[in-house]
Design a binder for these strands. Structure first.
Length: 890
RNA sequence: GGGAGCAUAGCUCAGCUGGUUUAGAGCAUCUGCCUUACAAGCAGAGGGUCCUUGGUUCGAAUCCGAGUGCUCCCA
């Protein structure tokens, strides 16, 4: 069979992924094995694969493939999130392009479009994950709006309501005037934005001289002012507290009050209070029993609706319908026209924006549904405790602090959204504003009858709440409901797979999702939802900037997979990904991955070349014995290292370890050591061993790079099984002496090669190697390899220096390189002198340490022993060098 | 404003409970090689005041304090 020059990834990827699917290797059903469960962080149904997904899912696939090869029942559940606001925004945009306004559609008509859109474009991302090689159990694909899932969300809402943990109330919410919906605190992104600070003068109501000047960034809310507040300790204003001032333009009389909340150092030290439009103002308003006057509507435009009692002037009425930012300028001008705008200055401040639409958030009073988080946490203290005591283990651990901090300052969760795409809130209202909460209209009717003692028809029937639930109110059930643990409690799958084993997700959704899954897990299963949480950092570009559409620095992943191959992409993204830190993505790491593919491919070609050259060859076998023994030991050693690294989730280091084992130990050392001479036969035993080692390496690498390893596994020999389901054998403790001798051999080879290079001995020029050692037995097993690796025709033991040779000292042993070529003794001497100086300085530092009585007294005996050995080694080395110099006639 | 974290080679990072030579790896750089698997390669080399500064200790990249710079989270 002809072997292609390089690994052809496209072909291999298609072939093997299909084969794995056909063999149902990714399919999992409960059995007697230990389960290893991962639920995918469900990407938005509208999403396309980006770098973050790539990192995240590569890691999950590595964990799941490794678990599968360790004999566990590996189950990785795919799925998508309906992403209410993000999806609805896309559907609205799509309709707008068709010339259809959302407002012209009924709820049902809109949802029909949305479902059509979801069927057409939704879940593209899941197909893309296949390209990356992800071994998901596709039969288990879930969607947060599947009928059962939908019902489970409704069920949980009703249940929490009945438990008194959900309430409806008029509260200050974060209002997105573009999306026209409330948002939870977590959906608000604070940004630094340049604005202006306006200094506005309010005149005293009694007509007397003076007044008070207030600094505000939001003059457009001035018509909703109900008080001016100063710090009670602020002497400047002490005399004014209790007096009234006039709000410019609208001429409302408002009091000057005092509260310690006010920072006397900010602006003028006087704060205008607009309880309808600012969270802190609202808090002060409640405390001082002030009215809230709302002057902005749901779209952020001025409305006089709540001002009509005050007989507003023509000027005020003219603002009707004006956008908040336009209004800001207009009101500033109008105040200036009154001569009450003292000054304007530039100001840079934090402004909340919507995570989804980017719009600047308004704080707005509105009637919404909330979860009482304080009560919830009192009921479920394990949510915090079990993370702090590592029942649920966070990686990296430092995120425990962040988690604790958030939970100990937790605010009520606003869960209603003024959208149509999502689970509709199961609350039912009569025409008088009474309501009941029930899963279905029928149940609602019954509940109504019971609660109010009359059928709802008396007051015109019941109508359901128009709003839907926050997306996270459905995804917090994900680890349970993908196994139908909420909709069909106690079913076999849920019992077997829950709690899941590991969650892999981004640090950015620790509050949105991770914390809430833990909450739901304890509330509904009484158990943690997962054992380990691995948090990935953010993927940034080479300059450390976030990947974004605007910057255009977000590479097209499918194109990268096409160009470098899925294995190389997986390698590249993981090798650059330090545990718990952000990842600076650079295409050069993909190149490294591709080069590694190439290396593996060529190693396979070499071994395949030997396949047909097997013949009994006792000499070749004997010469290779050490290499075989040593590599066997190295393999066990690395297997142990990998177990340890993987259990600590140090995946990047684990990959580096396998990479170096394959590239350095296997290719650069082992294969060279057993390689037969040109067109010489190879011993069948050596060949069989080599293939066996290669198999083991492929198995270790397979979770990281599944395609090329499967391909090579089948190229190397004809097989009846696949690497994908190969079972690892446990690592055995490697013999330390063998490993040590291997290190000695490597060191000797490197040092001799370096000496050859420095003396301009071409690799082809053969040498005679003389060795002066007190332990010749150490060299018996490695002599053959040593000769081959430094191109020595002979290895001779000697007891005295060899004339006209290059001298190399390694510890207390001396090597003499004898060649046809004349030796540059001056250079040799210079080298030796340099080494001598280094050794002498080193000796001095060790001596100093040993001369320190307090060191010898206080340090642990083994540490002192190490120092003594260092001293002895250095002294021996110095002696060797001096003898060599003497032999050179120095 | 509150909290958390980071600072080690040109870049990205290891360096776990202080002592394994005078600090390691990968990538990049430089030198020599188209050596019979691989130039997407091989063999070598150079490169660091472990941010600054006090302290604890026989001993500090490692522990503690202060400072500086950066990052993230929360308000």
């Amino acid at each position: 069979m002809d072997i292609s020059k390089n690994f052809e990834h496209q072909q291999a990827e298609t072939k093997w992924y299909q084969h794995w699917l056909d063999q149902q290797y990714f399919k999992s059903t409960p059995d007697e094995r230990e389960p290893y469960t991962i639920v995918i962080p469900p990407p938005n149904v509208t999403g396309v694969l980006h770098m973050g997904h790539c990192l995240n899912n590569t890691i999950q696939d590595i964990l799941i493939r490794r678990a599968r090869m360790q004999g566990k029942n590996a189950c990785w559940v795919p799925g998508t999130d309906h992403a209410s606001i993000a999806t609805e925004a896309k559907v609205v945009a799509m309709l707008r392009e068709k010339g259809i306004a959302k407002s012209s559609l009924s709820r049902d008509e809109f949802l029909k479009y949305a479902w059509e859109w979801k069927e057409k474009y939704g879940g593209i991302i899941l197909q893309q994950l296949k390209k990356l090689g992800c071994s998901l159990d596709w039969d288990r694909t879930s969607f947060t709006m599947d009928p059962d899932y939908y019902q489970s969300v409704i069920k949980v809402f009703v249940d929490l309501y009945n438990k008194g943990l959900i309430y409806r109330g008029k509260r200050m919410v974060n209002w997105d005037p573009v999306g026209q919906t409330a948002l939870s605190d977590e959906e608000v992104i604070f940004k630094e934005i340049d604005s202006k600070l306006y200094y506005v003068h309010y005149q005293l109501a009694d007509g007397s001289e003076g007044g008070i000047t207030v600094a505000t960034t939001r003059p457009e809310t001035i018509l909703g002012d109900v008080a001016i507040c100063v710090n009670p300790a602020d002497e400047r204003y002490a005399a004014l507290v209790g007096k009234e001032v006039i709000v410019p333009i609208i001429n409302r009389r408002i009091p000057i009050i005092a509260d310690e909340y006010v920072d006397a150092a900010f602006g003028t030290g006087a704060l205008k209070i607009t309880p309808a439009h600012d969270k802190n103002d609202n808090m002060l308003g409640l405390k001082h029993q002030l009215k809230a006057i709302d002057t902005l509507d749901a779209t952020g435009k001025f409305t006089t609706a709540e001002l009509l009692d005050e007989n507003p002037s023509e000027q005020v009425l003219a603002y009707q319908g004006m956008d908040r930012f336009e209004l800001r300028k207009k009101i500033a001008q109008d105040i200036a026209a009154l001569g009450q705008l003292v000054k304007e200055e530039d100001y840079r401040g934090q402004v909340g924006t919507s995570e989804r639409t980017g719009a600047i958030i308004e704080s707005k009073l509105s009637l919404q549904w909330f979860i009482n988080m304080t009560a919830f946490m009192d009921k479920n203290p394990q949510v915090l405790e079990d993370v702090m005591n590592d029942t649920i283990q966070f990686h990296p651990e430092k995120l425990k602090n962040t988690y604790r901090h958030w939970l100990s300052n937790i605010k009520d969760w606003c869960i209603s959204r003024q959208l149509w795409w999502g689970q509709r809130i199961p609350a039912w209202y009569d025409s008088e504003g009474n309501f009941v909460v029930a899963a279905t209209e029928k149940e609602a009717e019954a509940a109504y009858q019971q609660q109010f003692g009359r059928p709802s028809s008396v007051v015109g029937g019941l109508s359901q709440d128009e709003d839907v639930l926050d997306t996270w109110f459905s995804s917090w059930l994900w680890p349970m409901e993908v196994f139908k643990g909420i909709s069909h409690p106690g079913n076999a799958d849920a019992r077997y797979y829950y709690p899941s084993t590991t969650l892999v997700t981004g640090q950015d959704i620790i509050f949105f999702w991770v914390a809430r899954m833990i909450m739901a897990g304890y509330e509904y299963e009484g158990k943690r939802p997962f054992k380990d949480v691995y948090f990935t950092g953010m993927v940034r570009d080479k300059q450390g900037r976030k990947m974004s559409k605007q910057l255009g620095n977000s590479p097209d992943l499918l194109e990268l997979i096409d160009r470098y191959g899925a294995d190389a992409v997986r390698f590249g993204i993981l090798i650059a990904s330090p545990a718990g830190n952000d990842l600076l993505f650079d295409e050069s790491s993909l190149e490294q991955g591709r080069n590694f593919n190439n290396k593996l491919w060529n190693a396979m070609k070499l071994v395949k070349m030997w396949e047909g050259r097997q013949a009994d060859s006792p000499g070749q076998l004997a010469d290779s014995q050490f290499a075989m023994d040593w590599f066997g030991a190295r393999l066990q050693q690395v297997k142990q290292e990998l177990d340890s690294l993987m259990s600590q989730f140090r995946l990047s280091e684990a990959l580096k370890t396998v990479y170096s084992l394959i590239w350095d130990d296997f290719c650069s050392w082992y294969l060279e050591w057993v390689k037969p001479g040109f067109e010489q036969p190879i011993s069948p035993e050596v060949y069989a061993n080599t293939v066996r080692y290669f198999d083991e390496l492929l198995a270790l690498l397979h979770p990281f790079m599944p395609f090329i390893t499967e391909e090579l596994y089948h190229q190397l020999a004809s097989r009846s099984t696949d690497l994908c389901t190969h079972q690892y054998s446990a690592a055995t403790p490697p013999p330390a002496a063998l490993l040590q001798q291997g290190e000695l051999l490597k060191q000797v080879i490197s040092t001799l090669r370096e000496a050859r290079a420095k003396n301009q001995l071409k690799p082809k020029e053969s040498i005679r190697l003389h060795l002066q050692t007190s332990h010749p037995a150490n060299y018996d097993s490695i002599a053959a390899v040593l000769k081959k690796q430094v191109n020595a025709s002979e290895l001779l033991y000697t007891t005295k220096p060899v004339a006209n040779s290059i001298v190399v000292a390694i510890e207390s042993e001396k090597f003499f390189i004898e060649s046809e070529k004349a030796i540059d003794t001056d250079q040799l001497k210079a080298e030796l002198l340099k080494d001598l100086e280094y050794q002498q300085q080193f000796l001095t530092s060790v001596d100093k340490k040993l001369a320190n009585e307090r060191f010898v007294q206080n340090a642990k005996p083994e540490v002192v022993e190490i120092e003594r050995k260092k001293k002895a080694d250095a002294e021996a080395r110095i002696q060797t060098i001096q003898e060599s110099l003497a032999a050179l006639g120095a």
